[in-house]
Amino acid sequence: MGIFDKIKNVFKKEEVIEKEEVKLYDKGLEKTRVEFTSKLGKLSKKYREVTEEYFEELEEILIMADIGVNTVMDFMDRLKKRVSKEHITDTEMLKEVIVDELFIIYVEGESLTTKINYNDNGPTVVLFVGVNGVGKTTSIAKLAYKLKCENKKVMLVAGDTFRAGAIEQLDEWGKRIECPVIKSESKDPSSVIYDALKIAKEDSYDVVLIDTAGRLQNKVNLMKELEKINKVIGNQIEGAPHETLLVIDATTGQNGISQAKSFKEITNITGIVLTKLDGTAKGGIVLAIKENVNIPVKLVGLGERKEDLIPFDIENYIYGLFKDMI
């Protein structure tokens, strides 16, 4: 079975991706792809036949993409088994198998969606969480802009009451994209959020996007604060938050797995926003996170402009990475 048949089977796509989006993906991932694929291309030119050295270099490429160490080791084991079972000796042929296996790690037979889980009876609440400096506030602004373009009534909540300048940052974004920002003098994020959700219900907002302070996942008190925030949201609007998005910086290494695990213990993480993918970082850790913690990526940040946030598409992602190769 060819790789594209496989992709088509796995992805029951609900809509065709707009060309514009694909282009943006390509552009954002260009740097990533050039390095990644040229390496793989070179690899199969260098080794016509599958040898131990070939495997070693392949392992290096995958590790350098920050795909988790254990994920890579398991992947290499599986690949070697397939190679010996299917008697693959040609490296050209192996390229297809590699892509194939990478898809399997991420998808695992599930049908994944990047759509936001909307609340039919009242405001939809989306909570953004993550460690410091990953791009929570910027991602919120971008998503708000996207939703506004879809004619949704959107509210932003300045729940980062800790970091200096965080409220002003969201406020400034609010002005730029013409979106109300609820903030308060209070140092307690729960109280701001409580007030905001009340307003959201009264003024029937469609979507409420809540910013929170960056917190390292091993800080007990901050994680407890998040637990409380979650409770407050749930008490105000039943079933909320409808989405809790964990924001992860594409440059993040193996620690991404720990972040995903810890945040998932405290909140019901429904998806990942993978930011800063326009650099040279490959963000491969999301494959390991999907495999180990089972959280899919929903959105991808590809630049600093308000338009630079698009739905994640594993097909585009891996296709982008391997374009030259296939």
Binding site: D66, N132, T251, G256, G279, T280
Partner: peptide
């Protein structure tokens, strides 16, 4: 918390500027 991309970042900045040192942040994580 940076992963393998560190080398690209460090070299990228170092090639353009005469860096004299680094600060590693968030080591309390």
């Amino acid at each position: 918390m940076i992963g393998q991309d560190a080398i690209n970042v460090i070299e990228g900045f170092n090639n353009e500027l005469p860096l004299t040192g680094t600060i590693l942040t968030k080591l309390d994580g």
